[in-house]
Simulated scan of single mutants.
Amino acid sequence: MYKNQLQELAQRSCFNLPSYACIREGPDHAPRFKATVNFNGEIFESPTFFSTLRQAEHAAAEVALSTLAKRGPSKTLAAKVLDETGVYKNLLQETAHRAGLNLPVYATVRSGPGHVPVFSCTVELAGMTFTGDPAKTKKQAQKNAAMAAWSSLKQSAYDFQCLPNLSTGHSHAFMHGIV
């Protein structure tokens, strides 16, 4: 998933496509992989070794996407493209699926005059509700809610011992998907 999103970001931004390199270690029967991705001249590395090359490349792509999303105003193009692709809605859905949770549920309310509507949206996930910034379209309001949820969960990930309504196993899987 992260590799696809990084490739889409490159295509939308007119950058060269990401290129991956890997380090393999360990015996043939139990290899471990660590990957790097070159994206627009910058190298991003997977945080640890993984049991498959695919996992290592996805982890490197996730590091790249996360780093690009956190950059300041001088790098707003990458952040804007990440938002336009709906990456946060995808991340929430993928994380919920991996953790065995119900998919995120969006509730959107329209207000304002008919010719200048304002849409506000909340998203519920794992018994928690998150509210995004108002927007001019329903689609953007949903993206804003997903971004608010993802940012909040990502920021709080290290503080959670377990999430409401989750078994210990699901909590670990849910947090693994976020971190």
Rank of each mutant, 00 (worst) to 15 (best):
S74P: 01
V118M: 14
A21W: 15
N16L: 12
E84M: 05
A146F: 01
A107I: 00
P31M: 11
K80M: 13
Q161E: 06
P31G: 10
H172Y: 01
A149D: 10
M128C: 11
A173D: 12
L103W: 04
A56V: 00
E84Q: 10
E57H: 12
H115C: 07
S46M: 03
I43N: 12
R32V: 05
S156R: 06
G132P: 09
H172E: 08
L53Q: 11
E124Y: 07
G169I: 00
G41V: 03
K139A: 12
L163H: 02
S66V: 14
A135H: 09
E45W: 00
M1H: 10
S151M: 12
P18T: 06
G100D: 02
S66W: 04
L92Y: 05
C22N: 05
S46W: 09
G41E: 06
R98G: 01
C14D: 14
P73Y: 15
N102P: 02
D133S: 15
A157Q: 07
T48N: 15
F15C: 05
E57D: 07
T131M: 03
A145F: 11
N40D: 15
G177W: 13
D28V: 15
T48D: 15
G169H: 11
C162M: 03
A148T: 12
Q93I: 02
G169L: 06
E25N: 04
G114Y: 00
P18S: 04
A149N: 04
F15Y: 15
A148H: 14
G177F: 15
T129A: 08
R12L: 14
T168E: 13
Q11L: 07
N40L: 10
R32P: 03
S19I: 09
N144V: 01
I23Y: 12
K80R: 14
V63E: 06
V118T: 09
V109P: 00
S74C: 03
P18M: 12
L17P: 07
C162S: 13
D133T: 14
T48Y: 08
A61L: 13
A96F: 06
G100L: 03
G177S: 06
R98K: 06
R12S: 07
T76V: 09
K143S: 09
L6K: 06
T85N: 09
Q93F: 08
G132T: 13
H170C: 04
